[in-house]
Nucleic acid binder design. Sequence first.
DNA 1: GGCGTGATTGATTGATCAATCAAACATTCA
DNA 2: TGAATGTTTGATTGATCAATCAATCACGCC
Lengths: 237, 237
Amino acid sequence: MAVDTKDRILDVAARMFHEQGFAGTGVATIQRRAGVNSGSLYHFFPSKEALLIGVLERHLEQLGPSLLDRAAAATEDPIGRVFALLDVYRERLRISGCARGCPVGNLALEVGDAKPRVRALIDGYFSVWVDEVRGWLRTAGDRLPAGLDRRALARLVLSVMEGAVMQARTAKSLEPFDEAVAQLHLYIDGLLSQAQHGAKEREGERSRAARLYAHVVERPSVPTEPVEADEPEWRAW
Amino acid sequence: MAVDTKDRILDVAARMFHEQGFAGTGVATIQRRAGVNSGSLYHFFPSKEALLIGVLERHLEQLGPSLLDRAAAATEDPIGRVFALLDVYRERLRISGCARGCPVGNLALEVGDAKPRVRALIDGYFSVWVDEVRGWLRTAGDRLPAGLDRRALARLVLSVMEGAVMQARTAKSLEPFDEAVAQLHLYIDGLLSQAQHGAKEREGERSRAARLYAHVVERPSVPTEPVEADEPEWRAW
DNA sequence: GGCGTGATTGATTGATCAATCAAACATTCA
DNA sequence: TGAATGTTTGATTGATCAATCAATCACGCC
């Protein structure tokens, strides 16, 4: 029964953190909704932050099985997988009435860098996400332009997803999400046909865009190095 | 002095809501940091939510002068303006050590639809943002493909910005932001050259991507109709 | 000088916050 | 049967929460 209780707590906490944020969720409410007494909750999670960490660790565990693998199972086509993944988020938005998108995105913006352990977990979550999509894009091989930075494109996909989810939640409508994803689709299809034409006129000149942004294309994948603030004083804007 | 006090409160509140979120910020802390007594704060803002609304109204007021207009002033080129705008956000990330990006994005994810007035304000903020960028894109005229949905592209730009800011904050690095924006740049440059070629072979066949997604291109701009949740029960994921 | 009005003060409210604790309970193995 | 370990109970802690209140202050107008 111990496992059940712990899981029940994590279920409720995950949902509430997702809907109301971390600071906006009271421990007492989690207890009540999970049918658990306060001492019992603190038996498994010695602090509220530990509870948040538990929730994030579970999100990280389930990222593969319940999200990436599902998208991968939807189709063999690596490009199709990208949009299958986006469609999972779309479906989650839909069934929740545009209330819940990515469970980690909220927390990412909320906790900032106040809690290092939490930030690291979220950073890891995004990294796994991006790496998986990058893997798919690499599988696409020469269907995509040779010089294209697969990791940067994967980052774009994640950015579009998070930003689109944000707007869909605010607008309480799937339209912003669909619009953004449709544009992403246009971009990737453009890349596909660009690579197709490039294959014919092999060794031909690189596209204007590729020339212009050669310096940002296919850079080495260095670990993200935290930057420190250098602002002397804060000014409103 | 009255105006000063109110502005001082709004300054502090805006900053703290941005950094720690709404629920994560205590009114007492705002009072202390603003050098104001509790009664004085509640004289101007009858509730914490009223304070949040005041902050958002000011963000909305300043969206034009301190953000859109600045980007528009940077260059006459409508496409250049888009990236000038993104660069403003990049600069804000940089000077804050990747702690602060869009002051509204956080609140958008946090409050959800609990407070209707707040949601409406945030929705309005995003709408103004998107409409302005759409205006620029329209100014670009036939430099962009004729069938391209300018509003959807503007939505994409906002999505990329918000999503990229989220990742930059989590990673404490500008790299994710730069990668995502670089990809967006590639897309838009592709659109530009696509329109350029299209101009030559005028009346030629539409691109494969445009054919595939014709149904999502240039749809009428309908107001966002809130969707209601239809989920019978929530399940963890 | 007296009056009115809005701004300011700061103590105080009850509620809720995260967290603690000793005691009771359940389960397992000796 | 009984000790041991792990789990659950629920009252309780002090701190902090948003919000209220009567009282005082500064300042313009008649």
